[in-house]
């Protein structure tokens, strides 16, 4: 997990290249091509080919149960999506779900990483425990949480009532206001350990001398954290957040397993809509159009991130 930034290696290579520009460049290009070729083959066959079909379908009438319509659809599939009353609410909920999840994951990941970086006893035991949610399959975790959260026979509600935390059981996944937040909560539970591991690794590599000299200068622990530790975590954090924004926005499993987008669409996000277009309406055209749009949104986020990262650090992005 490391940011996509330039390295001194490249500078060195450039220096070498200056000596023998022509031949050297060709050799480098060839070596690079050889190295990325296998990955490129996989991408071409398993991603580019399906993606080209998605692109094609987005501009054609493709309906599995209605073969009477076919042919070039111009922008009709996009119109279908825009005219769908669910589209804008779903787009908004996708943002909400992504932001809540990623912010929660980052907060918990940072808190746990800081705690685990302390020189305490039984550190490795705690480090092992924190990883556990991440190794539980999403479908199983989703079912288990759904069951634990049910009002009538779910353990969490009953215990919280017994402990006096709540007056009566609450249907977390069944209420319009709480369904999406509850699924986000479970998503945070399952995903934050990944942040913990990455942030912890970065924390452990913060040079000790800097912190010590700061302590000598009588900087308090909070000041030390804000002014010394956080900047060290910046790149890792940005990368983590960026990749998880993508993963969360297109995540389908958690919401589907726990609420199927319900109740009354309260947890419907764009991937759920794509699924519905394809598997319930059999309108592959509209599903593809929506998928293209989703990718468009994500690319927009990517460019914002890219330029943001570029302007905030003097190092330029690698590619």
């Amino acid at each position: 997990m490391k940011a996509l930034v330039d390295t001194p290696v490249a500078t060195r290579l450039e220096a070498a290249a200056r000596r023998d520009r022509g031949a050297r460049r060709a050799a480098l290009g060839k070596a690079a091509a050889v190295c990325v070729a296998p990955a490129a083959v996989f991408l071409l066959v398993l991603i580019a080919y399906p993606l080209s079909r998605v692109f094609w379908s987005a501009f054609h009438y493709v309906n599995l149960t209605n073969p009477t319509v076919s042919g070039f659809a111009r922008l009709d599939n996009f119109t279908t999506v825009f005219e769908d009353e669910h589209f804008w609410p779903s787009l908004w909920r996708t943002c909400e779900w992504t932001v809540v999840s990623v912010v929660g994951e980052y907060a918990l990941g940072l808190a746990s990483a800081v705690a685990l970086a302390q020189p305490i006893r039984a550190r490795s035991v705690f480090r092992a425990i924190v990883i556990i949610p991440w190794v539980i399959p999403i479908v199983v975790a989703g079912l288990n949480w759904t069951w634990m959260l049910t009002p009538d026979y779910g353990v969490l509600n009953i215990w919280m009532v017994k402990l006096g935390l709540m007056a009566k059981p609450y249907y977390w996944l069944g209420n319009l206001n709480s369904a999406l937040l509850t699924v986000s909560f479970v998503n945070i539970w399952r995903s934050f350990p990944f942040y913990t591991i990455s942030l912890l690794a970065a924390l452990l590599s913060v040079p000790r001398e800097i912190l010590e000299s700061a302590a000598m200068d009588a900087a308090g622990p909070i000041r030390r954290f804000v002014y010394i530790t956080m900047p060290e975590l910046k790149i890792v954090s940005l990368t983590l957040i960026f990749i998880h924004v993508i993963w969360t926005a297109i995540n389908f499993d958690f919401i589907w397993v726990m609420t199927q987008g319900g109740p009354y669409n309260a947890s419907e996000t764009l991937p759920i809509m794509i699924y519905r277009y394809a598997m319930e309406d059999f309108d592959v055209g509209a599903a593809s159009a929506l998928a293209m749009m989703t990718m468009g949104f994500m690319l927009a986020v990517f460019f914002i991130y890219w330029y943001g990262a570029r302007s905030s650090s003097r190092e330029s992005a690698t590619w």
Binding site: L4, V36, A39, A40, L43, I47, A48, P50, L51, V54, I243, I246, W247, I250, F252, L270, P271, I274, Y275, A278, M279, A287, S288, A291, T294, M295, M298, L299, F302, T318, W319
Partner: peptide, 15 residues
Amino acid sequence: VGGALLMSQMIPGVL
């Protein structure tokens, strides 16, 4: 290839 690798993460698996 780097850009393509990143793009590939943005496609919903259902499709």
